[in-house]
Each structure stands twice: as C-alpha cells, then as structure tokens.
Design a protein around this nucleic acid. Sequence first.
DNA 1: TTGTATGCGTTATCAG
DNA 2: CTGATAACGCATACAA
Lengths: 330, 330
Amino acid sequence: MPSRQVSMGDVARHVGLSRSTISFVINGRTDIRIAEETKRRVWEAVAELGYRPHAGARSLASNRTNLLGLVTDIASSPFGGGIITGAQRAAWERGQVLLIVSIDVDASADAAMLEMLLERRIEGLIYATAGHVAVSLPASAAEVPVVLVHCEDVDGRYPSIIPDEEHGGYTATRRLIDGGHRRIGLINLDAPIPAAGRRSGYERALREADIDIDPTLIVSGSADAGAGYELARQMFRHPDPPSALFCGTDRVAMGAFDAIREAGLRIPEDVAVVGYDDQEIVASYLRPALTTVALPFEEMGAAAVEALNGDIEAFKGSVVRGSLVERASA
Amino acid sequence: MPSRQVSMGDVARHVGLSRSTISFVINGRTDIRIAEETKRRVWEAVAELGYRPHAGARSLASNRTNLLGLVTDIASSPFGGGIITGAQRAAWERGQVLLIVSIDVDASADAAMLEMLLERRIEGLIYATAGHVAVSLPASAAEVPVVLVHCEDVDGRYPSIIPDEEHGGYTATRRLIDGGHRRIGLINLDAPIPAAGRRSGYERALREADIDIDPTLIVSGSADAGAGYELARQMFRHPDPPSALFCGTDRVAMGAFDAIREAGLRIPEDVAVVGYDDQEIVASYLRPALTTVALPFEEMGAAAVEALNGDIEAFKGSVVRGSLVERASA
DNA sequence: TTGTATGCGTTATCAG
DNA sequence: CTGATAACGCATACAA
C-alpha cells in the first residue's frame, strides 16, 4: 500500500530531467526528437518506480479522454454480445476505451446514465440494441457524436448501422437454390422493420434462378418457436409442399423442426432448413445443427466505432452484411 | 458547439458566489450549512448555464473516481449477462460506474487491459466468467481490491463469489421428490468444479426423503446436448428406469428430451425433467418448456460490488443461491 | 455561512 | 533537444 502514487515529477526527479521530457517520451511524441539514451533512462525509471499515468489528470490537461460511451440492452439479452466485443476491439486498436452502460430494453431512465457518461466526458456515443427496433434518445445525447447500432431513432436524427436484411434473405435463399431446391418456403417475421428486406432478398434470389414466386409458400408470424411450429405445420399441409424452408429466426426454425418431424420428414434429406440469427445455443444444439445466416454483430460494433472516428455522416443508411454459417440442416 | 465547457467558476461568477460554495451545494455536503435560497440560486444557474462537473478534474482533486473495473468474458458468451446487469445496478446505487472490459475466454492479453483500468484509477476489480473455471490474474491486479465471480483463482488469493451448487442440486432434486418421484436419475457433469457439489445436494435431498441412493441412476458426461442424448438413452435401457431426471445443464436436458421421446415416453407425464442453468433460449423454447435451476448471475454481480464496498474478506468462500424456475417439464 | 489559497498530475507554450 | 511556467476544473483546509 504505497502512501502516495508516483507522479511524473517523481520520475523526472529520479532521472534528473524535466517533467516535459518525461511527458514527451511517455506519449511517444514523434514531433520532438529525443535521444534514444534519454528514452531508455526514462522507461527504466518508469518501470523501477512503478509509475502509471493518471487518466484523470491527463484528460484535464489535454481535454481528451479517449472514452466512448456504449449504452445497450444486450447484456440483459441472450444474444448480441458481439456488438460489445466488436466495438471494444475496434476501440482498443485506436487507444480508446468503452464505458458500457447496460439498460433494460424498456427502460427510459437512461437520461441519468447519459448524464453520467457526459460527466466522464465521453467523446462519442454508441446506442445499441439486441433487437432491431426504433428508439428515442434523451436530448443531451446530441452533445456528442452519436451512432445507433441495430436500431433507428424515431426522428432519424442519427446515423444507424444495421444489418443488410435484403442481403441476408438473398444469401439464405441462394444457399437453398444452390442445394438444388426449387420449391422454397419462407416463414417470415410479422411486420417488424427487417421483414420486408428479408423477403425481397428471398424474391431476388428466386428471380435470379428463374423460379416463380409462389405466394402460398410465404407466410409470416412472430419470432418464436411456437409460431414456427404452427406455420411450418400449415405449410406441409400444402398440396405441393416445399422441399426447403427459410425461417426468419433460429427459434422459428426450432419450431419448424418439430413440425417437419411430425410430418414424418427428415432434415435435411426431405426438407432443407436455413435459419436466421445464428443464435449459437439454438443453432448449434439443434439436431441436426442449423445452417443459418449470422447477424453481423461484431462487424456492426466495430463499424460504430469507426463511424465515431471518421466521417459520421458517411455512415448514414449504411448497412453491414452477415454471413452464412454452414451446419447440417441444409 | 460551445467554444469552451462551462466550469464551476462560470457558475460562481454567474450567481456572484465563490467556487467553494458552488462545490458544496453541488456535492450536497451536509456537514456545511448553506441557505436554502443560496442552493436554489446555484442549481438554477447550473441548469441555465448547462454546467456539468468534469469527472476527470474531480478525480484529480479528490483522489476518488467511483470507478469499478469489470473484466469478463460474458459478453462473448451466450449467457451470464446478468452479472453485468446485477453489478451495474448495485454500483449505480452507490454512485459508482463500471468500466467493463470484455475478454475472450482464453485470452491472456488482459494484462494490458488491466493496466488501462489502473490508469483510469479504478477503485476495485471484478473478474467474472461465464463458466465456472479457474483463472489466473496479472500480478498488478493486487493493487486494488479484487473479487472473482463465478470463477476461482489458481492460488486462492482473492475471494470468489460462486453459485451454491450443493443447494442447486438439492433444489432440483427436491422439486422432483415433491412431485412424487422416488426413482430419480442424475446426469451430472464430468469433473468440473461444480459437479461434486451438485451431486451432494442431490444425495442430501434423497436421504432426507428416505430414498436409497442408486448409483446406477447416476451418470456423467460433458455439458452438451449430444452427451445428454446418449446418457439419457442409456439410462432408459435400465431394467428399472427412473421416472424423473435431473440434468446438469439445460443443454443436456435438451438432448435428454430427444432420448426420452425416442423411448416413446412423454414429458412430464412419464418422465419429469429438471435442468440447470436457465439458459433462457434453451429452457423456454423447449417443448415442453424446461423447469430448471437458475444460476444467480444478477445476484452474484451485485454481491461482487457489495464485497468491493465492504469487508471484502468476509466474502471469502461465500456462495449465492439460485432459484427454481418452474416451467412445464416437471 | 461564505470566500481565498493551494494542490492534484498532466499537457502545452515558449524560450533556451 | 530540454526546462520553466502556466493552465486544466475541482476539492479542501483555513480564514473571515
């Protein structure tokens, strides 16, 4: 328990140099030439004394914190953690740190949290959600650069980084077509933001392969297993049932699996299935393991940090692509 | 874009008081009596000028940061996010903030991350893992109070906050006994830290109910669905098979479900099943939904913050209890 | 109850 | 290349 922390002055005294010199070498400033020997001595003293810069003092003097705020509900959600991972990696590479605040999906008590972030002098704010939703930020958010991830703000003030749903729909469908299928069912999501994009990707893939779009093969419902089960059951009562299924969610696929088995069909021999989300727990433990389109969480997190560090306006309406995770169901 | 941030001095000038007075009212100091009228005027000016304290300056002057470091792999894991939620809630209540650093389960490049946390002058460190494992921290961690959550350090230097596995095993088994079962199978985990505790809870519940412990009803394997399937299959080839199953993991239960169905048995009518972990996605989307023992993640996170704020030694070897989540499988 | 003076650890400016 | 010196915004001992 050292009685006092060791400061830059202590280091200076130890090596018999001025504080400025210490500061220069510690910050690795290239605009000022310093003798190698001097640097060596400084670093040596730093190690010997166990000196550690004081971030608070530094931010006071330099008026920079290298702090980015990340407020998100993904910690209280079973997936989407990739956003944190991706954002943090990108931030770290730039010498930046994330101050993460976890909120509830519903909570609006986040004004106080934001205030706290502002007191800490964050230099940018990332607001990320696990689900693709519309949000509304406290007014004070506007005091720093803001990017939204996986959500959109109600009055379109801030740029959003969202998954390329059209491309995802296309990728999934294309995989099925490449597997030789021509009757491909789509169990889409009811009306949330992404549903439309997913469907048009599906249709584009079909058109490209000269397959007629059969509206009776397209249904939609909620995102859970129950809906998947019901909708799939219904679909396999079709006089000319599909040989492949693109499900809007891994959970939907999970339900569909049950219905397909109940119909006495095997996966993927009789029916190939592709899911959406790559919710690891569901997708990889399903039997057979689910081939699915991964949401690009890490990429979105990283993109958010890049946006904050670059021309933020350039990211308006930008979209990032997920990739197909091949397992055994298609 | 204000050309300069407004400081305490600006507020003081605005109301015609000294900076100390402003400081006193802003920090709500009760050891110094200040006229209500004065306070009112100060807060008014604060609002009018949009003054916001500078956390860096404050930490420099007071030598306190109210920052807690949380380094964890749960963001890159599908569950355990409750630790963040719980820790943050507890911290927030004490006016503290979490600096969260997400690491990979394997990564050991965390020395640099820890160094960064120390530069930010964290006043305590929480190291939390998604899985119950043994870890080893960089030496510099010892410079601040440390608590481990859901893990233990190899040389037992720091206190750990871990789930009460014995109690969990007891709770699950007890639930089955209360449901009228007397032949209860246990599919335990192979040799990781928690397995032993779980089993002794199971045995205690049995003994309490005067049920003989049948070693042939106790098997163990890895934590995944594949193992659950195999082990359960095996168990139902027993001449006198169990009418209830306690699975060491929800994923194991997921596999067991398949085996039970294959054996032509119904859940829970013919076989009652209780899982462990309460991995929401698995447990709630299984059909029937899985009754399971929840790991007390939020409570552990909160306990960690409390430990850091109190007598940290008192938390050595302390254990926190999860609770049963009743669904439909038992 | 309020004001003054000082110091916290850094960075930045500017002169050598 | 190096060394004084002055901020940075706030808390606090001390004086009034």
